[in-house]
Design a protein around this nucleic acid. Structure first.
Lengths: 90, 90
DNA sequence: CACTAATTTTAGCATATTTTGATTGACACG
DNA sequence: CGTGTCAATCAAAATATGCTAAAATTAGTG
């Protein structure tokens, strides 16, 4: 792995390395969801959820798409899903 | 994934989410190494390396074993290696 | 024991991250 | 346009992390 990859992947892993963000990402494994739906599962202030989404977006882990008055989020990199699959294995 | 797993894996991913620690872990993929050898590849103060090793150890990512005056480190959880394999894919 | 090499630990400081209320922006609808 | 809903951003406080330098530990050797 070259230097760029090290810091890129370190950034990605760091972004995943937070319980709330990990839950958000896992909730997007099977389907895209809008912010309100993600928020509904998390018992946290709306701004907190939005900040975490913003971080995940800035690292290229998720992508958003406006859909009328809502904003949908979905996973952007297939490998993220694979990493989570490894974690869940046994 | 249950709540305990979320915070456990978030901790693990956070620990991996640092370029130095990622390099350390990657260097242990193929073989165990003593601190001096790990240090030699990193151009950092020895105590800094030791602190990163200590963190990786506290998260159960690596394990150490004293061997005379040296201390060897090796990966403890096979799944960590699998996560890195996913990262390196393409 | 004294000396050296290998490694860890501690302490302090600078930076970065996390959280949250308040504010702002975007959109739909009457 | 005014209002309500959904979501992003701002700003400030609290907390956590990373690094350096110095001191401490542990083991091997004469």
């Amino acid at each position: 792995m070259d230097k760029v990859s090290y810091s890129k992947w370190a950034d990605i892993l760091k972004a995943l390395g937070h319980p709330i963000r990990l839950r958000i990402v896992e909730s997007l494994l099977d389907a895209e969801k809008c912010v309100g739906t993600i928020w509904a599962n998390l018992d946290l202030p709306q701004s907190t959820v939005s900040q975490h989404l913003s971080l995940l977006r800035s690292k290229g882990i998720v992508q958003d798409e406006r859909c009328g008055s809502k904003v949908k989020y979905f996973l952007k990199d297939r490998r993220i899903a694979e990493i989570i699959k490894v974690m869940k294995a046994r």
